[in-house]
Amino acid sequence: MPHTIKALLFDWGDTVMADDPAKHEPMVTWEEVRLVPYIHPALLQLHKDYTLCIASNARDSNAELMCQALERVHVRHLFRYAYTSSELGAAKPEPLFFSSLLAKIGLSPAECIMIGNDLQKDIAGARAAGIRTIWYCPPGSLVATDGRHLADVIVRSMKELPSAVRLLASKGS
């Protein structure tokens, strides 16, 4: 019997929020914080049908600081859950990261889709945990063509995300 997708698990940096690797302080303290292009309308559409969760390896922020940054760009209310590797006791792509996350939100791997920009940490890690995946690979990003098989779906723009989620959700488990 197929499982219904109930939750979308989002990476944070360069999947929801535009990251600046040159900065080494919590994002909430940056002068400017920005969403990645087109993620806001996608989140508005998706949160109506799915539980949204941020699941990040954020080095400089814990979940509380991450949520404060999301508040600055007016999307915090769209996410029911927010966790970083410090709260989960492991970092992506470690299996413990995903098993701890699933335990906290009370769902099985078959009920979730992971959306992220890092092929190894987000996509390979989630796939190894039995979670379906959407790889966000915008034009101009470094593409590991030999790893494309790891993702269930690849989106080049967040404009494509709602239809990619619907596609995966319609496939069942």
Rank of each mutant, 00 (worst) to 15 (best):
D118Y: 06
T15H: 15
W12D: 06
P162G: 08
A82F: 00
A124C: 10
W12G: 03
M17H: 01
K104Q: 13
N117P: 11
A7I: 03
I5V: 09
L70A: 14
N62D: 12
A82W: 00
S173W: 11
C67P: 03
A103M: 03
T15F: 15
S85Y: 06
E64G: 07
A103F: 05
I54M: 09
C67V: 05
I131Q: 05
K48C: 11
G89L: 07
P95R: 11
E31P: 07
P26D: 01
P138F: 03
S99V: 12
L9R: 01
I123F: 05
V28F: 05
S61I: 07
A69C: 02
L142S: 08
Y38D: 12
D11M: 13
Y38R: 04
S173T: 09
S108K: 09
M1R: 12
T4G: 10
I105A: 04
R72M: 00
E32P: 00
V33S: 03
Y50I: 13
K6Y: 08
L150T: 07
S99I: 12
I5C: 14
A58C: 06
R59M: 15
D122P: 08
P138M: 06
A55T: 06
N57V: 13
A124K: 09
I113K: 09
D60I: 03
R59V: 11
N57P: 13
Y38A: 07
A63Q: 05
S99G: 10
D146K: 11
A151F: 07
A22G: 14
L101D: 00
D146S: 13
L35F: 02
H47R: 08
R34N: 11
I115L: 06
G172S: 13
D49G: 10
D14W: 01
Q45G: 05
N117D: 11
S108G: 12
P2D: 13
A82C: 07
H24Q: 10
E25I: 14
A7N: 02
P37A: 01
F10L: 09
I115V: 14
K6T: 14
G116T: 02
R59H: 13
L161W: 15
H47D: 04
L9F: 04
L43E: 01
D152V: 03
T4M: 12
R127Y: 07
R132P: 09
E94Q: 10
L65E: 14
E71L: 00
E71N: 01
T29I: 04
A129Y: 10
A126D: 04
D60Y: 14
A58G: 05
N117V: 13
L9Q: 01
A164Y: 15
Y38N: 10
K92V: 04
M17V: 01
A82N: 00
A164F: 11
I39L: 08
L161P: 15
A69S: 02
A82I: 00
S163V: 02
G130R: 10
L78G: 01
A91P: 03
W30I: 00
I134S: 06
P26A: 07
M17W: 01
R72F: 00
L46I: 11
K171L: 15
Q45E: 14
L78V: 02
R127P: 15
I5K: 13
A7P: 07
S100R: 04
A7S: 08
L101E: 00
T15R: 15
H149P: 04
T15E: 14
A91Q: 09
S56A: 12
D152L: 04
P21C: 09
E160T: 03
I115A: 05
W135G: 15
L107W: 06
